[in-house]
Design a protein around this nucleic acid. Structure first.
Lengths: 221, 221, 221, 221
DNA sequence: TCGTAAGCGAGACGGTACGTCGAGTCTTGCT
DNA sequence: AGCAAGACTCGACGTACCGTCTCGCTTACGA
C-alpha cells in the first residue's frame, strides 16, 4: 500500500518533495468517472478501462493510487452524498430524516448495488475490509449524534448501548432496502422507528409542540 | 428448483419426452462443485470453468440448466444448510437458536460472502432478484413460525406486523454479521433479542422455569 | 507447446476428434492479417491487438495456436513468397535468378525488416530458433538444387561443400541487403556470383550459346 | 539527427557555455548500464527503466543525450570491443584473426543479438540507419586494411573491389553466426577464407617463412 | 556575488501493448 | 435431445515500457 490517500487516520508527515507531485486533477477526474460509471451501470458494469477513457487518464495513474478495482470503488463510493447531520429537537424526527435520506441514497445512487457487492469480498480482503469499515462507520455518525443528543436531553438512559441502538434502527432498514422486496415507504420507515424507540427505553422529554417537519435534509435552526 | 428457463412461477407443461433425458448425476455434480468452490474461494473466485473441470461436465450442460453464473450461484447457495425449525416453547429461546444458527451459517459457509455479492446485482437483474428473494423468504420461515406460535400462546398481540417483527430481529444481526466489525458473540445476539422483544409487545405467558441463560449457541435445553 | 502446427517434423497422429475443431478460417485470417501488418509497419509496428481487430478473431484464438508474438511472426513470414526453383541450364543464371528474387523479397516485403528482428532473439529463445531455422533452411533449397544440378552436369566437383557454397553466395548478398548501405543493383549481384563461382571449382560444361547478360532480374529468357 | 554529442562526424561548434554542463559521470554510467543489460538480457530485455535504475540517472538525462531507445542501444553497442588491427604479414592469417575475433564478439557479447534486432528497424528509421551504418563501417576497417596491405604487397590485383572483397569474407561468416545453426568452428572459418581468397585473385607473394602470428585467439594451425 | 540558464534525480503522466482469464455461445461426434 | 470436449468472440484485467512532463535542487558562467 502506498498511501492511497483517503485511508486511515494519521497521515503523510508532509515529506512529499521529490519527484513530480501527483496530479490532483487526475485524482478528481478518476473519482468522478468512477462514481458516474457506478451510478450508471452498477458494480458489475464498472470497468477500469472505462474509468481510463472517461477520465482521460492512464491505467498506471489509477493503479498508482488504488491497488485494485475494489479499492477504487470504495473510494468512489465514499464520495457519494453523506448523511447530513440533523437536529430537529425530536429524536424520532431526527432518525426519520436520517433514515429517509439513507433510503434515498441507497435507492437512487448506486450505493445500494455497490456496497453489498463490495461487502461480499470484505471477509477475504483485509484492505477492502478496512476501507469499507471506515466508510460504514462514517455513515453511522449522524445517527449516533442524534442518540447522544437524546441522552443529553434525558430522553434515553445514560447507559444506552449506542452501537446496538444504531444497529436496531439501521438493521431493519438496510435489510428491507437491499435484501428484500419489502415495504420502504416513508410510512413504513417511520413505523420501524416508532417500533424500535420504546425498546431502547425512550421517553420523550416533553410534549413536542407542533413540529411540522416532514423533511429537513440540510440543517434547520 | 428445476425450472430451467423462465425461472420461478407456474411452468413447463410436463411434456418432457423426446431425446435423451437430462442427467441427474450431472446436476448434482455441478451443484456440489459450485458449493465447494463458493466455500473455498468466495464469489469472486467462483468460475464456471472451474465448475466444469471439477464436475467433469460441459459448459453447455450447465447453461442448459441455469442461464447465468449468478443464477447457478443462487442455486448452489440455496443448497447450503437451512435454518432448522425449532420449538423450545419459549419465543426468546426459539429466536436465539435460529439467530445463532444463522450467524453460524453466515460465518462458516460462504453464504456471508456470496449473498451480498449477489444482492449487489439484485436490482439490475430481474431473474436474479426473483431467485434471491425466493431463497431469502424461505430462510425467514422458521422465524415466522416462532412468532406465530408465540401469538397462539398469547405472548404477542394478534395483529403483530410479522414482517416487521422478523426484520427487527434479523436486521441488526445481518448488519453486524456482514457489514461491520461488530460484536456477534452469543451474548450480543441474545442481547439484541432481549432488546427487541418488548418493543413487539411481548409478554411471556408464564414464568419460564429454570432457563439456562448463558448456554452454548448450538444446543438449547 | 501445444502443437502449433507448422512446427517440427513428425506430427499429429491424426487423432483430432473430440471437441470443436479449430477453425481453418480463423487460422488463415490471422496469418493474412499478420502478413499485412508486417508488410505495412514492420516488426516494430506489429501488434497482436491489431491482428485481432483485422482478423476479427479473439486473442485466445491466436494464443491457442502460437504461444507468442514472435512465433506468430515467424509463421506469418513463412507465408511470404518462396524462392522459386529455376532451371535455366546454366548455374550462373540459376543463381542470378534466385538471388534477384531473394533481393526482391527482402526489399519489397517486410521480410528484410522482420527476419533480422526475429534473428536477434534467436539465441535466447529455443522455440523461435527452431521455427526460424526451419524457415531459413527451406529458403536455401532452390540454391542447393541449382548446385546439385551443376554437379550432375560435371560443372562442379563432386565433393563440393554444399553448405559452404550456398553461404558464399548468399552471405554477401544478405550482408548488403540487410546490414549496409551497399550496392545491390542487378549488376552488383551478378558480380558477386561471377566472383564466387570460380572459387568453388566451377567450369562451364560447354559454351553457353548466346546468353543475354544484362537481362531483367525477373525474366531470364 | 540532434548531435547527441559523442556521435557522428562534423561537430558542435564548441559553443556550449551557458548553464550547467552535462555530467560525464552520468554518460558513462548510462552507457555501462546499457551495455550490461544488453549483454545479460539481449535487446528484448533492454529497458530504459532499467538503465535508469542501474545508472541512478533520470530518464530526462538519457533522452537529453539519445533521442530513442534504439539510438542508445547503438551507442552502447558501439562501445563493445572493437576488432583489432592485425598485421601478421600474411593476408590469410590476418583475415583469420579478424574473423575469429568477430565470431568471438558476436557469440560472447550481446552484439550478435542486438545488432540484428536493430538492423530490423534500420529501413524504417533514418537516424538509426545512420548510426548503425557508421558502426558497421567502422568495424570493417581492419579487414579493409588487411586487404590494402596485401595489394601493396602485390598479392592482390590493384583494381580489387574492396567492398566486394570484404563482403565476400564477412558475408558467409555473418550468415553462419547469426542466421543459422551452422558450423563456426575455427576450422570452418579458415575454410571460408581459403575458399574465398583465390576468387579475389590472391597469390601469396612468397613462401611465408616462420609465420609471425600477432593474434590468433582461437586455434591457429 | 549574484542571477540566469541549463543539468540533474525523482517520479508522475498519457498511451499503448502485452499475455491471461472469464463469460457465454457454438460445433463436433457420440449416446 | 443430451452430453463431454473444446473451440469461438468479446472484453476486462493488471503489468510493463515508452517518451514526456513537472518538481525542487545543483552547478557553472558571465554580468
Amino acid at each position: 500500500m502506498k498511501q492511497p490517500k483517503g485511508a486511515a487516520g494519521t497521515e503523510t508527515p508532509p515529506l512529499r518533495s521529490v519527484g513530480r507531485p501527483r496530479s490532483e486533477r487526475s485524482e478528481t477526474a478518476i473519482l468522478n468517472a468512477a462514481m458516474d460509471i457506478l451510478i450508471e451501470k452498477g458494480y458489475r458494469g464498472f470497468t477500469i478501462d472505462e474509468v481510463v477513457s472517461r477520465a482521460s487518464v492512464s491505467k498506471a495513474t489509477i493503479y498508482r493510487r488504488w491497488p485494485s478495482k475494489e479499492l477504487l470503488a470504495v473510494a468512489a463510493v465514499a464520495g457519494f452524498p453523506e448523511l447530513h447531520a440533523v437536529d430537529t429537537g425530536s429524536l424520532e424526527d431526527d432518525l426519520y430524516t436520517i433514515v429517509s435520506e439513507f433510503a434515498d441514497v441507497l435507492q437512487n445512487t448506486a450505493l445500494g448495488a455497490v456496497w453489498p457487492s463490495l461487502v461480499g469480498e470484505r471477509s477475504r480482503n483485509e484492505e477492502l475490509k478496512a476501507a469499507l469499515d471506515e466508510m460504514t462507520e462514517h455513515r453511522r455518525t449522524p445517527t449516533r449524534q442524534a442518540f447522544e443528543r437524546a441522552i443529553e436531553r434525558g430522553e434515553l438512559p445514560e447507559d444506552l448501548d449506542l452501537a446496538l441502538a444504531i444497529d436496531m434502527i439501521m438493521g431493519p432498514v438496510l435489510l428491507r432496502l437491499l435484501f428484500q422486496n419489502a415495504d420502504t415507504t416513508p410510512a413504513a420507515l417511520r413505523k420501524i422507528i416508532i417500533a424500535v424507540l420504546p425498546a431502547l427505553g425512550f421517553k420523550p422529554a416533553k410534549k413536542k409542540p407542533a413540529v411540522r417537519r416532514r423533511r429537513a435534509p440540510k440543517a434547520p435552526a
